[in-house]
Amino acid sequence: MYYQLINFGNEEFHAYPNKSLYWKRLNTLIISDLHIGKSISYAKNKQFLPPYDTKEILNKIFVSLDKIKPSNLIIVGDLLHDVFSTLSLKDQDYKNLSQYMKNTDFIWIKGNHDKNIQIEGFKNLSNHKIDKFLFTHIPIETSLFQICGHYHPKVKISHRGKTIFKTCFVHNEKIFILPSFGILTGGLDIHSKKISDVLGKNNLSIYPVGQDKVYKL
């Protein structure tokens, strides 16, 4: 898999087109906003999205773990869409997960969607600090470098008279925001007020995610 090299907080990270981020020095894989079970949550309201999201997301994770074999997997929030989401996890899924947990330490940071849910075998934290880096779903007031999720960033690209929206990795000097690893998850323009309030408007490093490649703008 091709990756895009990103330097953040003087550390080397690799951004993959499957929307995961790899921290090389600590052999740690980072993903965010999986929203497992979103289709079930919608079905509850009689909005019938295809129920394949959970299966696909888990497969994506397993493929990454097989390839990279990280010591740690950090999920920076919204692993699950809501309390109904666990209904979409089958016995086999739990078995597979515990199999992978033997070699990889799973660290689950709570997000706004899943702060009250527990899954057996998962460490459930409100944030997690490693060296000068803080892993948190939504950025907080701190002097540390922060790696977060929550916003599902997308970037608007206008070129030769055409405009496209692309999911992206984005960071400023201190805050890094991951794209959503989910399947049925939407996105938010990085220049929208919600994201600007966090990252500011200038000096952003933006990495749009293409089909097989992460680009750098």
């Binding site: 019938f48 999205l49 129920p51």
Partner: peptide, 15 residues
Amino acid sequence: QDGGYVLKNYDQFKR
């Protein structure tokens, strides 16, 4: 009725 998908994850939710 329920989106008509072959995979049935949620029999309990129907229209």
